[in-house]
Write a protein that binds this DNA or RNA. Structure first.
Length: 292
DNA sequence: TCGATATCTAGACCGCCCGC
DNA sequence: GCGGGCGGTCTAGATATCGA
């Protein structure tokens, strides 16, 4: 069975761009165009509306997207199940995590796994941890290393790997807006502090709750996707940021910032591995899941 | 308005595989 | 060995968008 047309379709459905989707599939855009056209001819229905500049899923394409995801997952599951009876596990697992998580957890997670399962190919994608749960639930990634959401969505399994406190960080240089007594914060002290915060995610939620309890609307200087960039901007003196301590410990710019001893402290959160429960049927996914 | 750029499509061609 | 089918690349063409 040739599942490539389904993979081509899903790549284009995700990216809605022939050039980027063909790069992701390691084929030329014209090959992708032909593959999609043949799929549409076989199905007798248009899957994409496209012109010389835009690509969009049709209603039939949206229906087929659900089928294609399920079909590929079931195909991988049965294939690996049959293979595992006959010989060692082989195939591909995609993992999504932040750059920091790749420094901090991947070695421990994968070093022995690679030796035990050398025929499993690992695909690592790094980015904003706030997107990780959504990507796993949407089937775009097999697994993610991510902070545990406040409420675990149905269908998501989570295994904690470590706990990290959230900390306020400030530039080491003196500034006029720096809170003078962070141990005893007041609304007046924090009202004028330029804040550099995550656009979304758990760190942002905890931070918003902290400011709400203080009775202050934070003066947001910048909203950033990904925690690593917050350390950079704080190090440059743009404002005060909030990051997981593990991000700070792994940052090459950690010497340019200082942790503010703010009270009350922000909550700790669990960092761990998450996976869609339905994906645990796959022997590959189960094998890596068992590593934690 | 016009040139540059981005993007998708079609056609030509090539290499590999498989059946005869 | 030959020919057909298939999947790939390369290239040109068409057209929308953008910016000067």
């Amino acid at each position: 069975m040739d599942m490539r047309p389904l993979k081509h379709f899903l790549a284009l459905a995700d990216m809605l761009h022939f050039g980027r989707a063909s790069d992701a599939c390691h084929i030329s855009s014209s090959t992708l165009s032909r593959s999609i056209r043949q799929l549409e001819e076989n199905l007798g229905a248009p899957l994409f509306e496209r012109d010389n500049r835009h690509v969009a899923l049709t209603r039939q394409g949206q229906m087929f997207q659900h089928y294609a995801r399920d079909a590929l997952e079931q195909w991988e599951a049965i294939r690996h199940s049959l293979m595992s009876e006959a010989r060692e596990l082989a195939g591909e697992i995609s993992i999504y995590c932040s750059v920091t998580a790749s420094y901090s957890f991947l070695y421990a997670l994968l070093s022995e796994f690679r030796l035990r399962h050398p025929r499993i190919e690992l695909k690592l994608h790094t980015g904003d941890p706030a997107e990780s749960v959504g990507r796993v639930l949407a089937g775009e990634e097999d697994m993610a290393i991510t902070p545990r959401p406040r409420t675990l969505p149905d269908g998501l399994a989570f295994k904690p790997m470590t706990t990290s406190p959230l900390v306020f960080i400030a530039p080491r240089e003196e500034t006029s807006w720096m809170p003078s007594t962070p141990q005893t914060p007041s609304a007046a002290q924090w009202a004028g502090v330029p804040m550099i915060l995550s656009e979304s995610g758990l760190a942002r939620e905890h931070c918003d709750t902290w400011f709400k309890a203080l009775g202050v609307t934070p003066q947001i200087y910048a909203q950033v996707a990904g925690n690593e960039a917050i350390v950079s901007m704080v190090g440059l003196g743009f404002g005060v940021g909030v990051v997981p301590k593990i991000v700070l410990d792994n940052s090459p710019l950690r010497d340019r910032v200082a942790v503010l001893p703010v009270k009350p402290e922000l909550p700790h959160y669990d960092v761990g591995l998450c996976v869609a429960k339905r994906r645990l049927k796959s022997p590959l996914i189960r094998a890596l899941w068992a590593e934690v």
